[in-house]
């Protein structure tokens, strides 16, 4: 196989060429040493330094328990975003078990789109070992695609655990729950779960039970002193309802967020995650522990890209 060229792919993304997306994913998913070098080049090529600003795409995390209706909701969101002329990339992280090494990735089946429309890109990836964990390539992919797509959705499965990962990566996190899911309520109240930016109750077509769920969740948020989070009810059953309101809520969150600060945080968290994936606990100890590593990262230039940050950490283990 010919090795993909990371700098060339970055140039295409910077020029708004969305047809680069499949190869971008092929590259960041690839674990050969040659591919890793190219993937680093790709990320440098879409870093704030290369772009002159943070990438323009809105990275939206969509997460929630299995069966909550995420994929059907995404189908409606994609339709609405396209109708508004916004391009969308969906990175679906599938929770399938990797017991046999392989995984069944079925999620794109539930997202309807026009195959002739190059404004939509959908890629499924098997999750990391733990439920809701991001595949290592997903962070890199989301960062890169945000340079060429208006919206980049990262879809994960889980409740209570996955929000941390996704919150490190996304500009806006939407947690999706279905009516009658008491877990979410408990997790919110007890502080197990991070507070989402937007909370979506699906299956509003069920009527009273969905309205009650929405009320209960709003009350739970108020009880922990959280008044910013929008709570919305949507239905993906024809005729779909609440989708435009959800998009407005996502946009409103973005408008009130210091995106640059969030992205800097995300890059530093990604660098630490990548470093740990590569060098393990032993590597962390060589840096003087996780907190020490975080302190070092916090002191770096905010525009610094992930490969440079990882390289910096690695250099410190050598000098230590």
């Amino acid at each position: 196989m010919t090795q993909l060229d990371g700098s060339a792919l970055a140039a295409r993304l910077r020029a708004g060429d969305r047809t680069a997306a499949p190869d971008v994913l092929n590259l960041v998913e690839s674990r050969t040493p040659a591919a890793r070098v190219q993937a680093d080049a790709l990320l440098r090529g879409v870093s704030p330094a290369a772009l002159g600003a943070e990438a323009g795409g809105h990275v939206v995390g969509v997460t929630g328990p299995p069966g909550a209706g995420k994929s059907t909701l995404l189908s409606e969101l994609v339709r609405a975003w396209r109708a508004a002329g916004r391009t969308v990339a969906v990175l679906a992280v599938d929770p399938s078990s990797r017991r046999t090494g392989g995984a069944l990735l079925g999620d794109r089946a539930r997202i309807a789109y026009d195959p002739r429309d190059d404004g939509v890109f959908i890629r499924s990836t098997a999750a990391a070992d733990r439920l809701g964990g991001l595949a290592p390539s997903t962070r890199a992919a989301a960062t890169a695609l945000a340079a060429a797509f208006d919206v980049v959705v990262v879809e994960t499965v889980g409740v209570g655990q996955s929000e941390t990962d996704i919150a490190e990566l996304a500009d806006t996190v939407a947690v999706v729950v279905q009516p009658g899911s008491g877990d979410t309520l408990q997790f919110l109240k007890s502080g197990i779960m991070e507070i989402p930016d937007v909370l979506v109750v699906t299956k509003a077509d069920l009527g009273d039970i969905a309205l009650r769920a929405r009320r209960d969740l709003s009350a739970a948020l108020r009880s922990v002193g959280e008044r910013e989070t929008a709570v919305l009810a949507v239905s993906s059953v024809a005729p779909a309802t609440g989708i435009d309101e959800l998009i407005a809520a996502l946009d409103a969150h973005l408008a009130h967020t210091d995106v640059a600060a969030r992205r800097v945080r995300a890059r530093r968290a990604t660098a630490l995650a990548d470093f740990t994936a590569e060098h393990g606990e032993r590597g962390l100890r060589a840096l003087g522990g996780r907190r020490e590593a975080q302190r070092w990262l916090a002191a770096q230039n905010p525009a610094c890209d992930v490969p440079s940050l990882v390289g910096g950490l690695e250099a410190r283990t050598v000098s230590a």
Binding site: S96, L104, L105, G106, R108, A109, P115, A126
Partner: peptide, 27 residues
């Protein structure tokens, strides 16, 4: 899946264009 592959299966009733687009997107 059981022999270790990642499998994309979208079910029935797809047009040739849909299948080809999925193959491209999914790499």
């Amino acid at each position: 899946r059981d022999v270790g592959m990642d499998v994309v299966y979208e079910g029935i009733r797809l047009t040739p264009e849909q299948i080809a687009t999925s193959a491209l997107h999914e790499g």
